[in-house]
Design a protein around this nucleic acid. Structure first.
Length: 924
RNA sequence: GGGCCCGUAGCUCAGUUGGUAAGAGCGCACGCCUGAUAAGCGUGAGGUCGGUAGUUCGAUUCUACUCGGGCCCA
């Protein structure tokens, strides 16, 4: 007789090899076919909402590890909420306007760009953005992220643009928006503003000059006439000089020289004086910068004018004199520090880089040509201490290559202090839950410090600032009706807002202003893209039927403390006086295996498409789950290879359970009371696992889920329970209570595990779902189920658990002895062994006795004998002595136990009495 | 240079209000099994808790400095 046929080995088509890159797309197709997201919505309709509002990624380039991480984290949350009794919709979005796209489009057009109208450029930008929306969408779906991909929100959509315009209008009407001057990078050749991203740094030869400014009156503690000495490489900005900045905490000294009396930073004085050719000098007094605040000096050109010494932390002691020539109209820092002293930017330069009449005698000169003239004048009037040439890195235009200038231009701002906005924001920040909690301090500090928000850009690809100007006096004309007219225009067609750029002015005006068309002109600036995404809570959360305002959660990289979290809360508090989110989670950045940032330069970038091709989405997701995302997240081939190992372990655990349930039906379930002790232990372990994992999801600590799952599969299941179960599953009679009990428990564990891991491993769990016995599923996808409920009736009492803990300790001792026996070649498989246990105290003895008839199974040995308490055993650390001998008898060819009964069964000489019973043959 | 954050075995993580010889899983090494088999089991070796100094009877846990790294500014 071939006993092989009487053994119930695991049986399944569930492939061991995952082959995720191939298999996942098929499953994704299935989800599309059944409209998984739609089914989720239906299933959860009416339940309590949980709204995670998606921060829109920029529709540009391929998705990288950081965006993948972000989307996967969001999906963990949405899916786990979904399975925890919430209705958790997910509406993804994209940020579609802005410079990077326009820049790319214009670059690709080359010379041709100049002959195209704004609308033609915009048309191309729109196509570009939509193309990348599509590429991203495919990528995100492939990662297993489930959401309303058919109807995402796009910041370029008509309704969205209309909302942007209405938000601007509301803020304008409430007085938060004003127009002011701000220096920006400007190309005098192209006559256009540039963003920092459009600047190329190249070497440039500039004048390098030291100039003295005469102090008005006297300095306390000093006799005679004194001068502050500044150093600059842009002499042409001197006509716009309005202050000299010192560092409050640095030391400045008063130096007497034959050429005059100078004040400069102490540590820089020797070099500066030497450069100016002054050998003899004497330091007669020292000050701190802050001691000199408020002293006044005479303007270089307008001698009747006096300017102040001011303080600024931006002053450095790298080069120069520590006294910084400050022209708020011509420099970013100068502007900021000037603003603090209420010094308005002054910039007597026009768009061509030519001095205006405000520049007095230099009027009409090009600024770079004016350098020499100005230096010459300084020399003649005695203000110049030294002049030379300096080659240094200087910003140049990316298009024409010419040197750039900073020039103050009219810009639109959000006034951070109007109606106490800043304080209201800080209060609002306080009501939000920030995870990790230091996020509150970080964003709070930023809001407290930040300057007014400049929301205008001199570009084509964006939402226009919807106002008009009266030609006569350049006053702003904007009314409720005019805003509404433009918003309606935007909403009227996919490219409705393009009419702003090409329609006759008359068509843009509301009826009551149409007759003034002749006297009006429109604003040409567009809005900062941060304003676009910043109002997403109004355009999306507030308007989308599935969503709510405020959102329950925002989740983005920690860089968004400065970005989207701020650009969102500012309009929200200004307009609605409440934050748009209840909680905010931030994650760190993806860095390489050494914790260094990924960059092409370092050659340590790992691309998402490569990850998908080599590993597949579920392994990438496992990586995301494994890492504590609040810190930086490391990614390397080694790390991915570890994830592959983890994945295999989990997959094989699933596979083994599925394979052992191949003949399991509803009728085969065994009552809890009939289960063996070890089965009950396993169910108790499952309860612990359920609680741990659900808690992990609830607290957004996915690495807890990951570790709990892996440990459970490896330690509780594979290394113990499943190993012990083999004998029962394989050799007990097919429908025996013992075997069905094992299957009942396996089914229970499998049903729970496949649900618990579904958010983390959506593809694999769906695959497992397909192979589940029919009695274990009643819906077409694991993602349409809830997490398993807690079953208190499966929890064991503490004394029972204590006994188990003792037994497992004993099992470890037995394992060690078995290994010893193996090394001495007494045994190979543990079933070849007989084990004799000598307890050293009552506790061990009691434990052993309480499992008396189960010990062979639990230790997976053929024979187990308990002896009386012995003194020798009492002296061991474990209070136990274990000795191993070869089990007596012969190996049963059916169950592989070594038993003395082998050979005693009539007609079945090669099997043991236990097998004989299972086969129903008399063991006579 | 400033603000915020991080640094525990090769990897990913635990380490309760400072207190006995710092834990887990994976990986690795060695062995077993061949009825989870490109699987499964067992045993074992890995850490001066980034470094230095301090507070303390005692610090991975507190403080200062320092080195390395990240985000945002400048």
């Amino acid at each position: 007789m071939d006993y092989k046929d009487t053994v119930h080995l695991p049986k399944t088509d569930f492939p061991m090899k995952a082959d995720l890159p191939k298999r996942e797309p098929e499953i994704l197709k299935y989800w599309d076919e059944i409209d998984l997201y739609g089914l989720m919505r239906k299933r959860n309709a009416g339940k309590k909402k949980f709204v995670l509002h998606d921060g829109p990624p920029y529709a540009n380039g391929e998705i990288h590890a950081g965006t993948a991480l972000n989307k996967i984290l969001k999906d963990f949350i949405v899916k786990s909420k979904q399975m925890s009794g919430y209705d958790s919709p997910y509406v993804p979005g994209w940020d579609c306007h802005g410079l990077p796209i326009e820049h790319k489009v214009v670059s690709e057009l080359g010379e041709k760009a100049k002959s195209l109208s704004q609308v033609e450029i915009r048309r191309r930008c729109r196509a570009f953005a939509l193309k990348y929306v599509d590429i991203h969408r495919r990528g995100f779906k492939r990662l297993g992220v489930t959401g309303d991909w058919q109807n995402p929100y796009l910041t370029l959509s008509p309704e969205y643009v209309a909302t942007i315009i209405r938000c601007f209008a509301e803020m304008f009407e409430k007085g938060y928006v004003y127009k002011g001057l701000k220096p920006i990078l400007w190309c005098p050749d192209c006559e256009t503003a540039l963003a920092e991203a459009e600047v190329e740094y190249a070497n440039h030869v500039s004048p390098s000059i030291y100039v003295k400014f005469e102090v008005v009156g006297s300095i306390p503690g000093l006799e005679g006439q004194w001068n502050f000495v500044i150093w600059t490489t842009t002499p042409w900005t001197l006509p716009a000089n309005l202050a000299i900045a010192l560092h409050p905490d640095y030391e400045y000294c008063a130096v007497e020289t034959p050429a005059g009396n100078y004040i400069m930073a102490g540590v820089l004085a020797p070099v500066a004086l030497e450069t100016c050719g002054i050998q003899q000098y004497k330091i007669i007094k020292k000050f701190l910068g802050k001691d000199l605040e408020g002293i006044r000096y005479r303007h270089l050109y307008d001698k009747s004018r006096e300017c102040p010494i001011i303080l600024g932390e931006h002053v450095t002691l790298d080069t120069g004199t520590g006294c910084v020539h400050t022209a708020p109209g011509h420099g970013q820092e100068d502007y900021v520090v000037g603003a603090r002293y209420n010094i308005a930017p002054f910039s007597p330069v026009d768009g061509k880089g030519i001095f205006t009449s405000e520049a007095g005698k230099y009027s009409g000169l090009r600024v770079f040509q004016a350098n020499d003239v100005i230096v010459q004048d300084l020399k003649e009037c005695g203000a110049l201490l030294h002049a030379e040439k300096l080659e240094h890195s200087y910003p140049h235009c990316w298009r024409c290559g010419g040197p750039l200038i900073f020039r103050a231009t009219p810009q639109w701002f959000v006034n951070m202090d109007h109606k106490d906005l800043r304080q209201r924001l800080i209060k609002a920040v306080d009501t939000v839950q920030w995870l990790p909690d230091w996020g509150k301090e970080r964003i709070g500090g930023m809001i407290a410090q930040r300057p007014d928000w400049c929301i205008s850009r001199q570009r084509a690809w964006g939402v226009p600032i919807p106002v008009f100007y009266r030609k006569t006096d350049h006053e702003v004309v904007a009314t409720k009706e005019s805003f509404e007219k433009i918003a309606a225009l935007a909403a009227s067609a996919p490219d409705g807002i393009d009419r702003w750029f090409d329609a006759p002015l008359r068509d843009l005006l509301p009826d009551d202003l149409k007759d003034q068309a002749e006297n009006l002109e429109k604003e040409t600036d567009i809005l900062d893209v941060w304003f676009d995404s910043g109002v997403s809570h109004r355009a999306v959360c507030e308007r989308h039927p599935d969503l709510t305002w405020p959102a329950d959660l925002y989740l983005e990289g920690s860089d968004q403390h400065r970005g989207w979290f701020q650009s969102s809360i500012i309009p929200a508090v200004a307009i609605k006086d409440a934050p748009p989110y209840r909680a905010v989670i931030t994650h760190g950045y993806v860095v390489d295996g050494e914790g260094k940032k990924m960059s092409k330069k370092l050659g340590n970038v790992i691309e998402v498409p490569w990850l998908m091709e080599k590993y597949g989405a579920d392994i990438v997701r496992l990586w995301v789950a494994s890492e504590n995302y609040r810190l930086d997240i490391r990614l390397s081939e080694e790390i991915m290879s570890r994830q592959q190992d983890t994945y295999r372990r989990i997959r094989n655990t699933f596979r083994y359970m599925v394979a052992n349930l191949h003949d399991f039906t509803e009728n085969d379930r065994i009552e809890y009371s009939e289960l063996l002790d070890i089965d009950k232990w396993a169910l108790h372990q499952l309860e612990i696992l359920k609680e741990r994992i659900k808690k992990g999801y609830d607290s957004y600590e996915f690495h807890v889920v990951y570790h709990a799952a892996l440990n459970f599969c490896s330690v509780q299941m594979s290394a113990f329970y499943l190993d012990v179960l083999k004998d029962r599953l394989y050799t007990h009679a097919k429908a025996s209570v013992g075997r069905r009990a094992a299957q009942t428990v396996l089914a229970e564990i499998l049903a729970a595990l496949v649900r618990l891991l579904a958010p983390m491993l959506p593809y694999t769990c769906e695959e497992v779902w397909r192979y589940l016995p029919a009695c274990m599923k009643d819906v077409p996808s694991v993602h349409l189920t809830d997490f398993p409920e807690k079953k208190t009736e499966h929890c064991l009492a503490q004394p029972v658990l204590d006994t188990w803990e003792n037994l497992l300790r004993i099992r470890a001792v037995v394992s060690k002895q078995l290994e010893e026996a193996r090394r001495s070649e007494m045994i190979g498989s543990s079933l070849q062994a007989a084990v004799t246990l000598r307890p050293g105290d009552e506790s061990v003895e009691n434990t052993l006795n309480s499992f008396r008839n189960q010990l062979e199974d639990i230790f997976i040995v053929s024979k187990c004998e308990i002896q009386a308490i012995s003194q020798q055993a009492a002296e061991t650390e474990e209070k136990l002595l274990v000795s191993v001998t070869p089990a007596p008898g012969r190996k049963c060819i059916r169950c592989w136990h070594v038993r003395e009964s082998v050979g005693t069964v009539q007609n079945h000489p090669s099997i043991c009495h236990v097998c004989a019973e299972q086969l129903g043959v008399s063991a006579a």
